[in-house]
Design a protein around this nucleic acid. Structure first.
Lengths: 130, 130
DNA sequence: ATAATATAGGACTTTTGGAGTCCGACTTCG
DNA sequence: CGAAGTCGGACTCCAAAAGTCCTATATTAT
């Protein structure tokens, strides 16, 4: 369907929340404010933290904080942080590879397309979503 | 996963086949040559025909023919012909609508993103895949 | 100390859409 | 007529996404 996953969608909502308010926000606060499953968002925040765009503080008065400038956070980065695969076809996936080998007729074309898409995702930053 | 569906992938392979060879090709010929399920490709060709980019001839010596110039066939058009939905999020879908209404904070942003993606898909034509 | 609040994360179930199959009908040419 | 095509509905199957549940660990306020 060529659709962003809910994980990415929720991740963007949360990042937007952090950027707009500044400082520390808890998962509970963000999930309640935006009608997102708490458990699901909690996992997403962990992934975003692993990437390094936010940091966490455990315990009472804890939560998450944005540590990169919104201009620095591209959609490509968010997608890569929250999804295992992001290749446009199996042809362009390192893990899978083209099933029509060795005579796949569109492999080269798909690599070009892959680049075009990544360029599009790269042109969108969190700053543009505020 | 932000991946093109197999329907679109197979559709592109078939369109490329038609463009390269010219004239009439049967589904059997295209499916055998490219290792694609016959039944699946048959449905795809019907959808491409409904769109108007190819025409069909039934009966013996029948098959499909490309009736538009490769430069005229954009990826957007192929995707629209082969997939019911192509909106980047439910927010940007006419049929679904945003579930975080009426206070969805990313709806506007997603429409911008939607435009960016369509622009990327529009920049790729069948002519570039030959 | 301890209770409350928060993240960390494994394991699981449910839901959904894509992918693929099967079968019967209709059409056309030789 | 019969072979070779497209046409199209109605399925099954499967993997990935989406969502849930539960326990552990860390931190702070009292």
């Amino acid at each position: 369907m060529l659709r962003l996953s809910k994980r990415v969608e929720y991740g963007l909502v949360a990042l937007q929340h952090l950027a707009r308010r500044g400082g520390v926000s808890t998962v509970r606060e963000m999930s309640d404010d935006n009608g997102i499953s708490y458990d699901l968002l909690a996992k997403i925040m962990q992934d975003l933290k692993r990437d390094g765009m936010i940091c966490s503080h455990q315990g009472v008065r804890g939560g998450y904080t944005l540590i990169l400038a919104p201009q620095e956070i591209t959609l490509t980065r968010v997608v890569n942080a929250l999804e295992k695969e992001n290749s446009i076809t199996s042809c362009t996936s390192a893990g899978e590879g083209c099933t029509r080998e060795p005579d796949c007729s569109i492999k080269d074309s798909m690599h070009i397309l892959q680049g075009t898409m990544e360029q599009a995702l790269n042109s969108v930053t969190l700053a543009k979503l505020l």
